[in-house]
């Protein structure tokens, strides 16, 4: 598999393309991020820097957030369909304050700079025009091989940072579509990723030959899946197939259905549900977050 992957990458990066060039100086801090105005109890001071990460497909705008001093395990955060934005930065800052060096990329860099949606809280999933905005964005990162190429670039970025402890495994977490990207990342760089967590992940189990759950044999990371009640209702066998896949791979995953939580419950700037209730569910979001931190503490030691 690894040989095939290298061969494919060689083809993808044919003469004249990235692999043939000696590309260096690839990730340039592009600007200085201001505090996002949501400061609260931080464990340690953190530094937030806007960066650019070169990938085989272009330059990805991203943010790198880490404790101001020391070296720490690296974490890659895959955003949901609304991409890199203030609420994702808040998630990263809070995690960094607990002792992690966090990279949050704009997953849609191939087609647009972040932020890609002006106001996620007013996004209307029932409106076809709103939904159509997401199609080209999600299509770009879900294209075959895109996430895998990005995963290598992002791992390389983290490993190049003095704030990242390279002796410790890297964690990756994702929300909504980011859950699928977590699995692709863990499978693409299996010896570097020690933990993966998916919260209200979308498209984790499909009937397609490239369904993410079929990647379980390639994944060495300890995995956690938090599933929304409405996602579970829509696809009740997904959790079973996930569990079976990881058990068969002799790497049992922890899988929980949050019976009071709707798809998107972990992300504070989610729009309201059709019934007017907020999607964001703070108690369950905090519970999910505690599972994430426990996973990282155990698996990234």
């Amino acid at each position: 598999m690894a040989d095939e992957r290298h061969d494919q990458y060689e083809k993808d990066n044919a003469p004249g393309e990235l692999s043939r060039r000696e590309f260096v100086a690839l990730s340039v801090a592009a600007g200085l991020a201001a505090a996002a105005g949501s400061a609260a109890a931080a464990d340690v001071p953190v530094t937030e820097t806007n960066v650019q990460v070169q990938t085989p497909d272009g330059v990805c705008d991203a943010v790198f957030i880490h404790p101001t001093t020391g070296t720490h395990p690296g974490v890659l955060v895959w955003p949901d369909a609304f991409g890199l934005r203030p609420t994702m930065r808040d998630i990263g800052k809070r995690l960094a304050a607990e002792g992690y060096a966090v990279l949050i990329p704009n997953p849609f860099y191939r087609v647009a700079k972040a932020p890609v949606i002006d106001n996620p809280s007013s996004f209307n999933f029932q409106n076809p025009t709103d939904r159509a905005k997401l199609t080209p964005l999600m299509g770009s990162i879900n294209a075959p091989g895109a996430a895998e190429k990005d995963a290598v670039a992002f791992m390389a970025f983290l490993d190049a940072q003095p704030q990242v402890n390279k002796a410790q495994k890297i964690g990756t977490q994702g929300y909504c579509m980011g859950g699928r990207l977590v699995m692709k990342t863990a499978a693409a760089v299996p010896d570097r990723v020690g933990a993966g967590a998916s919260f209200h992940g979308g498209g984790l189990v499909t009937n397609d030959p490239d369904s993410p759950h079929l990647l379980a044999p390639q994944i060495k990371a300890k995995m956690y899946f938090g599933i929304a009640a409405n996602d579970d209702m829509q696809q009740p066998d997904a959790k079973d197939k996930l569990r079976e896949a990881f058990t068969a791979a002799k790497n049992p995953a922890e899988i929980e259905v949050y019976s009071n939580a709707q798809h998107g419950w972990c992300v504070p700037d989610m729009p309201k549900q059709a019934n007017g209730e907020p999607i964001y569910n703070k108690p369950d979001a905090e519970r999910a977050r505690s599972k994430l931190v426990a996973l990282y503490k155990a698996a990234l030691a």
Binding site: M1, A2, D3, R5, H6, Y9, E10, N13, L18, S19, E22, F23, V24, A25, L26, S27, V28, A29, G31, L32, A33, A35, A36, S38, A39, A40, A41, A42, D43, V44, P45, V46, T47, E48, T49, V51, V53, Q54, T55, P56, I65, T68, D90, K93, R94, L95, A96, A97, E98, V152, A153, M155, A156, F157, A160, Q161, V189, P190, D191, R192
Partner: peptide, 30 residues
């Protein structure tokens, strides 16, 4: 959320090595 004592990093240049070399490092050919 976190970042209560946030500082701002100076602009810096971060070097990432050749991507294919990184691939070989991260996913050694078998």
């Amino acid at each position: 959320m976190g970042g209560g004592h946030q500082t701002v990093a100076p602009a810096n240049l971060i070097i990432v090595q050749n991507w294919l070399e990184e691939l070989k490092r991260l996913v050694p050919p078998k």
